[in-house]
């Protein structure tokens, strides 16, 4: 069995990607599953989705804990989410970035490989999404076909033509282009593709103690009544949702406080030297930039600052 985990953000199409990959494998006669992890499904929030592919019936219905392949739709997530958590020793990581695989600093075991593809650029070229928010899910799948040999690119193209929610032809073309332009593997130690793995043993069902994310001891200091003691500020760093970030021009700022007043996330404050953004929580909505009376705030791509 091959188990795949997608990391993206709400709005980027990770869930659709997991389904299209499963459909393509199904067309080739495999047994498949595709499912998202239900969390906070908000635009920009990190989203995880999974695909399982096997030649036998897939009986395991649990979450994927030890993926063979991890697909990252947005590099800004590298800082926010432990993307290689549980990745198999000989796993593959496929990242949407313009950089070379050798430049990616990610934590993998010695036999794992990294691939990169500039899916954002390809998506923009094919008119998928906008410059600021390209829709990269189909492009990256083309690269996945090439890197893993799990499904044929022609099968994937057909599936995209039939089942993509919109702009089917452009999406299929983007996948084909990414298939041709993927870089990697790096360091490239593995000799065989993944085809032989499709009928391997199914993974064990994880034990309940593995599923506990935190030591119960950690909870004891927290109140157990509905009388709230506010701790979202320690537990929920929503800065990771951001795809664009506000940059304050301190020379222009007149300390009026309007940005503070209108920030829905209470993430911008006015200090003596001008407005200061709390990047732990700012979600990059852009309201502060829109409302600033002297245009002292500009929104810039988050990627540049990761």
């Amino acid at each position: 069995m091959i188990e795949v985990r997608f990391h993206g953000r709400g709005g980027q199409g990770s869930v659709v990607a997991s389904e299209l990959l499963a459909r393509a494998a199904f067309e080739e006669g495999k047994d498949v599953q595709a499912f998202p992890m239900f969390g906070v499904e908000r635009r920009g929030a990190p989203v995880t989705a999974f695909t399982r592919i096997d030649e036998k019936t897939v009986r395991d219905h649990s979450k994927i804990h030890e993926p063979d392949i991890v697909i990252i739709l947005d590099t800004a997530l590298l800082d926010a989410v432990d993307v290689t958590e549980g990745l198999k020793e000989d796993g593959d990581v496929i990242i949407n970035t313009g950089k070379d695989p050798s430049e990616m600093k990610i934590d993998i075991e010695k036999d794992a490989d990294v691939y990169t593809v500039d899916a954002s650029d390809i998506a923009i070229e094919h008119g998928l999404g906008s410059e600021m928010a390209p829709i990269v899910n189909t492009a990256i799948l083309g690269a996945v076909c090439k890197a893993t040999g799990m499904v044929d690119i022609d099968t994937l193209s057909d599936v995209i033509l039939k089942h993509a929610p919109a702009k089917n032809e452009a999406n299929a073309k983007a996948a084909e282009q990414a298939h041709d332009e993927i870089k990697g593997p790096y360091p490239g130690k593995k000799l065989e593709g993944r085809e032989g793995q499709l009928s391997s043993q199914q993974t064990d069902i994880p034990k309940s103690e593995d599923l506990l994310c935190r030591d119960p001891e950690d909870h004891t200091d927290l109140p157990r009544t509905p009388i709230a003691d506010c701790d979202s500020e320690y537990l929920n760093k929503t800065g990771s949702w951001r795809t664009v970030r506000p940059i304050v021009n301190k020379d222009k700022c007149i300390n009026c406080g309007i940005c503070w007043k209108f920030c829905p996330d209470v993430a911008i404050f006015v200090e003596e030297e001008g407005a200061v953004v709390d990047f732990d929580f700012c979600k990059g909505c852009g309201i502060c930039a829109e409302e600033c009376p002297v245009d002292a705030i500009e929104m810039d791509k988050e990627e540049k600052y990761v």
Binding site: R42, P264, D265, V266, F281, C285, G286
Partner: peptide, 15 residues
Amino acid sequence: MNSGHNACPGCGAAH
């Protein structure tokens, strides 16, 4: 009302 909440970016209900 503090930061670290789960409203979408730009949510008027948070305001």
